[in-house]
Structures are given as C-alpha cells and as structure tokens.
C-alpha cells in the first residue's frame, strides 16, 4: 500500500469559509427578482413569442386570465379552458368576474383595469374571441396578450 502513497501532500480542500456569503448572495438575487406564486396555473402555458413588447405600468391594475388546454386532461378534457384565480370559468361568467375585480380597485382607477391574457400558443382564436366579446361587454377594454421576447435574427 505504501508504495502508492504520494510523497508530497497537496492540500485539495475547496475553501468553504465564504460559502455562506455566496449562498446568501444567490438567495438575495432570487428574493429580489422573483415573486410569490399567487395562483397555481392548471392550463398549459406555452406563451408565444413577439418583438413589440410593452411593459405593464402598474401591477395592481393587472389581472391575469389564462387560456389553454387543461393540464389534467383526463379530468377536464382536451378543449382549451379559461382559468382565473385558481378556478375554471365559462365565457358567461366573465362579466361577473370582471366586475368583481373592478370592485377591488379604488373608484378612480377602475377604468384602467388591464386584463393580461396568458394564452397558450396552440389555443384557437374562437375561444379567445368569445372572451374578448365578453370583456368588451364588461367594459374592460385594456388587454395585453402575454408574449415572450423574440430574439431577432440578424
């Protein structure tokens, strides 16, 4: 055994004294850049890509509406569904839901309510157009189709 023992012992330890600092830095990075999950999205979300993105001004005025194929397809089928605040709703319920959302806002800001439509790429225009018609009736006319930044080919 002693044949193979190296003569010179080189210290091989990675210094760990700065490990907490490194990890804390990572922790702070994630604390600052992310936000807490509010809803568990139960529909597929393959957000389409676009170039002309606009950023939303104020988060408090924004409400999310998700459309896509349900993730639990054996339970809910494969037809795209509309999800808001953890529940599936039908197109007929949208006006009621919008009004409830408007009630949560102060009176002078109700007209500025923005609906962020997070729609799956493969969802069809039919269901989206129905939702839009209801939103028009509910007078929530500011909408935003969620999209990711497309990297432009040069």
């Amino acid at each position: 055994m002693s044949k193979f023992r190296k003569k010179t012992k080189v210290k091989q330890d990675i210094p760990t004294s700065s490990m907490p600092d490194v990890v804390f830095m990572l922790l702070f990075f994630f604390m600052v850049t992310t936000e807490l999950r509010k809803t568990a999205v139960d529909v597929q979300q393959r957000i389409p890509q676009a170039t002309q993105l606009r950023k939303l001004q104020r988060k408090t005025l924004v409400t999310n509406l998700y459309i896509g194929e349900p993730k639990k397809s054996e339970q809910y089928g494969t037809e795209p569904k509309i999800q808001v605040d953890d529940t599936f709703i039908e197109t007929g319920d949208i006006i009621l839901w919008v009004n409830r959302k408007k009630d949560e806002l102060p009176e002078n800001e109700r007209e500025q309510l923005t609906i962020a439509m997070k729609v799956d790429s493969e969802a069809k225009r039919g269901i989206i157009a129905d939702v839009e018609t209801e939103l028009r009736k509910a007078n929530a006319r500011k909408i935003l189709y969620a999209a990711l930044q497309k990297t432009e080919k040069r």
Binding site: I47, A50, Q52, L53, R54, K55, L56, K59, V62, A116, M117, E132, L135, R136, R141, K142, I143, L144, Y145, A146, A147, L148, Q149
Partner: peptide, 9 residues
C-alpha cells in the same frame, strides 16, 4: 412575466 402586446378593445 408582465410583458406582452398591448391592445385596446
């Protein structure tokens, strides 16, 4: 992800 195509209905 709060970016997207803004529209007025």
């Amino acid at each position: 992800n709060d970016k997207g195509l803004s529209m007025q209905l």
